[in-house]
Design a binder for these strands. Structure first.
Lengths: 260, 260
DNA sequence: AGTGAAAACTGGCTTAAGCCAGTTGACCAG
DNA sequence: CTGGTCAACTGGCTTAAGCCAGTTTTCACT
């Protein structure tokens, strides 16, 4: 009977992946549904278990499925994205709510936010950070604050903030103590640094091994990296933060004027 | 003789991947260098070829290596990112140069830019686009323009622009004809739509199969998706564009004021 | 010297078999 | 009813062998 379909010049693993993908995107296999087990697939399609395994791995790499040891493979559900915008830095929002936009966003989704300052140290800054702060990466240490953000105790992003010594001094910013109402940007204001412009450099990539472990990132999920620079009213950078966030749980939403 | 190293609770494929990764990040294996072949690795470490293969696959998924049929696997070089910013929409930049920011950026990197309008059609808009345009996704068609962006004939991003009929009318925007100096935003201005604010919603994910093919995306590379909305001086949306770009070649760079 | 075919590589993908380690549910003893 | 055990599932990972399809090198013949 010759070749039936046209998508036939492909290796079996991909052919099977295609069929499963079609079932997923068409809705035949809704989010959360269990896929056939590797051994079932193998029998069903007359292929080796390894080949069935590879088919599922393909879907996993595409972020369409997730497999769990001892349980099976499941259609991954796409939870609503967390939308973080420039209003993260709005003073009005900060003062009205007394609560960070992260907490608002998480709460809005019916989950419980938690943030954790994991460490405060003094270190030589990475080259890209030093450049943006306008300091010498070899000579001057900066204050490094590492913050973790959770939703329902699931880690969703990390932010590492670098503050020049000249800015942090002996203020609360340079110590482990709790930052209090309005959090970090309120403390900057206490010191006379009013955030007036921000620069955000955004990239995406696959997570490193450390990030995969720390953020518990499932396979097939990239991270978004945001290198954030805060500028005061004299256009001087006073703080740089590198955010790394799970791309399946986070998105960015900016609204801004177009400058001439 | 007992266990030597501590990182030993891991399967061989991962152990080997770890060693190779260390060599790459330390610089022992610089970008572009050929990795040992699968058969060499197998012999070297006393593992099966499949296991060596899996080790390389791990690096590939992390975006650290790329393998080429018949040639070998190589340490992936990280080309400088294309930095696309809000100045994409700057009128001054548009008028001074007469050239799109994309072309400037690509030329700056010593590569040759090319853009291609692949199709202009009238269709019902996707739900998310319709919502942002404030039109009924069931009732009204919009003009859909599909644009491809190349650097040295390598595709780096796609932009699909949706324009309400009420805006496009019978202007050049609704036809295949060349858009001319200043390109699309100049034509919007001709019609009285001056871009004054933009909204950019950013997410990242693994590419779909179509995107992998169309953009020729190597394995282990995510895409950045930007849903862009242009607002005129009366805060009315007149155009939405969905950009999909290879995350290994593109980055975003925004500088903006912090609004109260 | 040039050229063209073959040999010796490379990765791509599959099969078949096996052991290990989580998970689940049935069933049995208390 | 509770708690524990165990068998039957699940995926995780490896080995060993083989065929195929690209690429590069070699070498003999022109």
């Amino acid at each position: 009977m010759g070749q039936a379909a046209n998508s036939d010049r492909q290796p079996p693993s991909r052919r099977v992946a295609d069929e499963l993908r079609a079932a997923i995107t068409s809705g035949d296999l809704p989010a959360g549904r269990k896929l056939p087990s590797e051994r079932e697939l193998a029998a069903q399609y007359g292929i080796a278990r390894n080949t069935a395994r590879e088919a599922i791995a393909i879907l996993q790499r595409e972020g369409l499925a997730i497999s769990q040891h001892g349980r099976g493979a499941f259609v991954r559900s796409r939870p609503p994205l967390m939308r973080l915008g420039a209003n993260r830095y709005s003073r009005r929002l900060r003062e009205e709510t007394g609560v960070s936009p992260f907490r608002i966003e998480v709460t809005k989704q019916g989950r419980t936010p938690r943030t954790e300052c994991r460490s405060v140290t003094r270190e030589l800054p990475p080259a890209d950070v030093a450049q943006r702060l306008g300091v010498d990466p070899q000579a001057s240490t900066v204050v490094r604050r590492e913050n973790w953000y959770f939703a329902d105790d699931e880690p969703v992003q990390v932010g590492v903030t670098y503050i020049p010594e000249a800015v942090a001094g002996t203020s609360p910013l340079a110590s482990e103590q709790v930052l209090g109402r309005g959090s970090i940007y309120a403390r900057f204001e206490d010191l006379g640094y009013v955030i007036s412009r921000i620069r955000e450099e955004i990239s995406a990539r696959m997570p490193s091994r450390d990030e995969t472990e720390g953020l518990q990132i499932p396979p097939g999920v990239p991270v978004i990296e945001v290198l954030h620079t805060s500028l005061d009213d004299k256009q001087r950078p006073f703080e740089v933060t590198r955010f790394v966030m799970r791309a399946d749980l986070n998105g960015l939403d900016y609204e801004m004027p177009v400058e001439d």
